[in-house]
């Protein structure tokens, strides 16, 4: 039991002392999560809106594919993206392997199905009176799009929170595409795995604490927003 308590004590010392190696991993995690979330939302929210709002042939098949991707193993995503961006791969010349943007690409692929599926569901569940209301108030196509997304904002928030949870705590993709390079692509999760493997519990625990605090803060902010505007 003692070595765990010792680890915790040392972890708090690392955090309060601002240990550069620990905070480098935290910073990389924040950057890669932000990049991946931005790409996921920019691509996924309109795609989910389209999927939920319109009827077209093959829609059910696309939904099935999207929902299958929800349970795609992260190491397989890592493997596929690796194959594409590695030096011999078709996108090899972009030099994405073992870089933060390269990790963000993999994490975006992880987050996209979540945002697409949940946005589509949120849009489908909107009141059928919404569209005629917007049209009769004189809204054009762009205004209908943004007002509809606005009405689905709680569903979108749920989609974003779910995607964040998945992307932020992910390890397989980060490890394979980032390579866990110290000061560069080492994230909180890959660092924990490495430090634990080396028997360095203190750093692992310190990073684990940071991971949970950030996750808690994000979810509390989302919940507060929902409470404030839904009441």
């Amino acid at each position: 039991m003692n070595y765990i308590l010792d680890g915790l004590r040392q972890a708090l010392a690392l955090l309060s002392g601002g240990d550069p190696e620990t905070f480098s991993a935290v910073w990389t995690t924040l950057v890669v999560t932000l990049e991946a979330m931005a790409a996921t939302l920019v691509l996924g929210a309109p795609a989910g809106f389209f999927l939920g709002y319109t009827e077209f042939p093959g829609k059910r098949l696309i939904r099935l594919v999207v929902e299958t991707f929800l349970s795609f193993p992260t190491v397989v995503i890592g493997l596929v993206v690796y194959a594409f961006v590695s030096r011999r791969g078709p996108l090899g010349e972009w030099g994405l392997l073992f870089t933060v943007p390269g990790m963000a690409v993999g994490l975006t692929i992880l987050g996209l199905p979540i945002v697409i599926a949940l946005t589509a569901q949120a849009v489908e569940n909107l009141d059928p009176r919404l569209r005629p209301t917007l049209l009769t108030l004189g809204a054009g196509p762009r205004q209908v799009f943004f007002a509809t997304l606005g009405e689905a904002r709680f569903g979108l928030l749920l989609a974003a929170t779910a995607a964040f949870g998945r992307i932020f705590s992910e390890i397989g993709i980060s490890m394979m595409l980032g390579g866990n390079i110290k000061w560069s692509t080492r994230t909180i999760t890959t660092a924990i795995a490495l430090e634990t493997g080396k028997g360095e519990f203190a750093t692992g625990i310190a990073l684990g604490i940071v991971l949970m605090i950030i996750a808690l803060a994000v979810n509390m902010t989302a919940a507060a927003f929902r409470r404030r505007s839904a009441a």
């Binding site: 209301t133 917007l134 108030l137 004189g138 606005g150």
Partner: peptide
């Protein structure tokens, strides 16, 4: 639809304030 508008049997309000609801069409135009 810029000059013809319809008040339905069971009107729907946007999940916004009263002011934003009443002003929506005006802002859109």
């Amino acid at each position: 639809r810029g000059e013809v508008t319809c008040f339905p049997q069971e009107p729907y309000l946007l999940k916004r304030s009263v002011r934003a609801n009443v002003g929506f069409g005006l802002t859109a135009r």
